[in-house]
Design a protein around this nucleic acid. Structure first.
Length: 434
RNA sequence: GUCCCCAUCGUCUAGUGGUUAGGACACCGCCCUUUCACGGCGGCAACACGGGUUCGAUCCCCGUUGGGGAUGCCA
């Protein structure tokens, strides 16, 4: 959450006026509220064990009946029966006594009016036999005690809401406003699962997604700025435009392609300085630095080198992972190599011959002890092509793969300039002999 | 099974009781080009179905179908 810039007002390790925040430290609070409920007759002890419940469920189902989760067995025990069971030392849980008739409804911020018939609501457990509250009870208590005004959550919680509302009612508390957002489904419209790839935001971070892009894409799921408005927005723009009232109520399928697109749009709109900030950690992580022996035209230091690299790269990267692939070969011989490209453009005999011819032409024509500009490399390449009677492209493709390990890169002559004549020659010879 | 939610291009969506149903992603052409991107231009493609209501329904109502969710002494 912190990655995409979300934070919280209070909590463990952060503090606040409504602590304690750890459930274990709040036990006494839950117990106190349970007592209130019990005194008001809104909660009762249930001595049914899991086995009891299972047996009765089987019985009812066999008779063709419908088991709704609980049959109210202990709901009507009288004081003597309860005392007897307690005397036996039977463990018990507490259940909420829900109304038998009428309905529970609320006006959902996104779904509008939602209504459930009380007779369909079962008496769910609010305090377990182990002495701990259930989630249903704990959230209500916490939200109330901490002064929560709005509960916004996934619509998989819709059917929990009437039960929670009943707890608020039983406690005599004013419930918060509820808003249920559509769920995000996988690309196949089924539940989002691991097989789809990344499912939690940390995975996206590893895949080179910018936090701003992630926020942007997520906001677009179930909401839209409307009409022909630009979908690519900064956090600030989204916050300004966003409205709960415009949130869709239908579930949305997650589309990795669109996320990638939003990501690349965000990257395209980054300033040179921002790009530099993005690239620096990658360089640091690789432990890369420039060697003055490379003799690179117009470059003084590491940062200057990186700036030049980023400049020639332009918009040729759409996420942080490809960015790493696109700058690695400038710094190290241990860079990423696309095997397929290598096999196609470097491995063939003809390509090797070309690399040998071109590398020796460069060596002969250019002064290897001086930094060379792109134009110098271009001259040699074109002249060599003419000499060999082939198009320049014939030399360019093998060169690109030999130098960068990839079929895609910035303009090849700029690449040569930034790799430096010495390494250009070395890599070409190396490739020819590989 | 029961209850609840949902339904516009393949996907995310805009939109209206009368529109050539708009945009974005993806996809397909073409242009640019030393590659790959970028960019530019163009194209394909949707109101789930059946009944109503109405002069007229994509839009309102009902049903069907389809999808999702909930049905825990998990959170």
């Amino acid at each position: 959450m912190e990655w995409i810039g979300m934070d919280w007002d209070e909590g463990p390790h952060k503090g606040g006026d409504f602590g304690p925040y750890l459930q274990s430290e709040r036990l006494d609070i839950y117990r106190k509220h349970l007592e209130t409920l019990a005194e008001g007759g809104h909660a009762y002890k249930c001595f049914c064990t899991a086995d009891d419940l299972e047996a009765r469920e089987e019985e009812i189902t066999e008779e063709g009946g419908q088991w709704e989760g609980y049959d109210g067995f202990c709901r009507h025990l009288d004081d003597d029966e309860i005392a007897a069971k307690e005397a036996e030392g039977l463990p018990f849980a507490w259940r909420l006594r829900t109304p038998e008739e009428g309905s529970t409804f609320w006006y959902d911020i996104v779904l509008d009016k939602l209504e459930f018939q009380n007779e369909l609501l079962v008496d769910r457990v609010i305090f377990k036999a182990d002495g701990f509250p259930t989630y249903q009870f704990a959230v209500v208590v916490d939200d109330h005690d901490m002064g929560i005004s709005h509960v916004l959550r996934g619509d998989d919680h819709v059917s929990n809401t009437p039960f929670q509302l009943l707890i608020y009612a039983a406690m005599g508390w004013k419930p918060p406003k509820f808003g249920h957002m559509p769920m995000i489904l996988g690309p196949n419209k089924k539940r989002l699962s691991k097989r789809h790839g990344a499912t939690n935001i940390g995975d996206f971070q590893n895949q080179g997604v910018l936090p701003a892009a992630m926020t942007n894409y997520l906001a677009l799921l179930g909401w839209s700025p409307g009409g022909n408005a630009d979908e690519v927005m900064t956090r600030e723009a989204i916050i300004k435009k966003f409205s709960l009232k415009k949130v869709n109520s239908s579930p949305a399928a997650f589309d990795y392609d669109k996320l990638a697109h939003i990501n690349s749009e965000h990257i395209k709109r980054l300033s040179a300085d921002d790009r530099l900030d993005l690239a620096k950690p990658i360089v640091a992580k690789g432990g890369w630095s420039m060697d003055s022996d490379w003799l690179i035209n117009g470059v003084e230091d590491d940062e200057g080198y990186l700036v030049r690299i980023l400049g020639t790269l332009g918009n040729r990267f759409s996420n942080l992972v490809t960015l790493a692939e696109q700058i690695g070969f400038f710094f190290t011989e241990e860079h990423f190599v696309d095997q397929e490209a290598w096999n196609e453009h470097v491995a063939p005999e003809s390509a090797r011959a070309i690399l040998v011819a071109l590398s020796s032409a460069i060596e002969k024509t250019l002064d290897m002890d001086v930094a060379q500009p792109a134009s110098a490399f271009e001259e040699v390449v074109r002249a060599t092509a003419e000499e060999m009677g082939v198009k320049a492209g014939e030399l360019i493709h093998p060169s690109r793969v030999a130098l960068t390990g990839q079929t895609r890169s910035a303009g090849i002559f700029e690449v040569m300039e930034l790799v430096g004549a010495r390494r250009v020659v070395a890599r070409m010879k190396n490739a020819a002999n590989s």
